[in-house]
Computed example of a mutant assay.
Amino acid sequence: MRSGLGSRVFSEQHNAGRFGVLGAHWFDVVRTLAGAIGQRSLSAAERAEIAAFFAERDQAALPGFGLARGANLLVIQAEALQGWTIGATVAGQEITPFLNRLRARALYYGAVVDITAQGMTSDAEYAILNSQYPLGQGAVAFLRAGNRFETVAHALKAAGYATLSAHPFKRGFWNRATLHPATASTARCSTASSARGR
């Protein structure tokens, strides 16, 4: 929050200081309109190509599809954890013993790359839950909070699973009080007072 990027994402003070209060409002209006205008519609040929891709993919047998049907799915997002720490040791001591034990019982994908942008943490949540790239500028958590999301949690709920989205930090951080209920059948975010006690 104290970094330059944090102040630009969560506060317009930077723009108000540069452009004045009215200028900051105009900047925000122009940025919003440019984002709306810049979204081009797909042509009929592009739509047909996408439909053909998914139709062909639906016909292909996906390797391992349904392999874990009926099993529990747990997604843990660990802030600022780097992949090399999983399985690594220092002086014979495991760095991540709990995660190592989980990995031994799970499907593990170690070739994941960072595709987050200005939304950082919230971009990671969005990418994992929606299987889509986040926005190149700004955060989906704020700029597209009113969207209707179809997440992995929705697919699991349709298959008979109960889903829960939980986070131990403040409800307003990255707009989780709005987004978590939209991405799972049940959501839990702590209140500001309980977050301070952690």
Rank of each mutant, 00 (worst) to 15 (best):
R2N: 14
S3L: 13
S3Y: 15
G4M: 05
S7F: 04
S7Q: 03
R8N: 10
R8V: 03
S11Y: 07
E12D: 14
N15S: 12
N15Q: 03
V21F: 04
W26V: 12
V30G: 06
V30C: 09
V30D: 01
R31N: 04
L33C: 11
A34E: 11
A36I: 02
A36K: 12
G38H: 08
R40C: 05
S41T: 09
A44W: 04
E49N: 14
I50H: 14
F53H: 09
F53L: 11
F54C: 06
A60C: 08
A61T: 10
L67A: 12
L67H: 05
R69I: 11
G70M: 06
N72F: 13
V75I: 15
Q77I: 13
Q82S: 07
T85A: 13
G87Q: 01
A88Q: 07
A91E: 06
G92N: 09
G92F: 09
Q93T: 15
E94W: 02
I95P: 05
N100S: 07
N100E: 06
A104V: 15
A104P: 15
A106E: 02
G110F: 13
G110L: 07
I115E: 05
A117K: 05
T121M: 08
D123K: 04
D123F: 02
E125W: 05
E125R: 03
A127R: 04
I128Q: 06
I128A: 14
G136C: 00
G136W: 07
L143S: 11
R144L: 11
N147R: 02
V152R: 00
A155D: 00
A155P: 08
A158S: 04
G160C: 04
Y161T: 00
S165E: 01
S165G: 07
A166P: 08
H167R: 15
R171M: 04
F173V: 14
R176E: 07
A177D: 03
H180Q: 09
H180N: 12
H180T: 07
H180K: 09
T183L: 06
R188Q: 14
C189R: 09
S194R: 15
A195Q: 08
R196I: 04
R196F: 08
G197P: 14
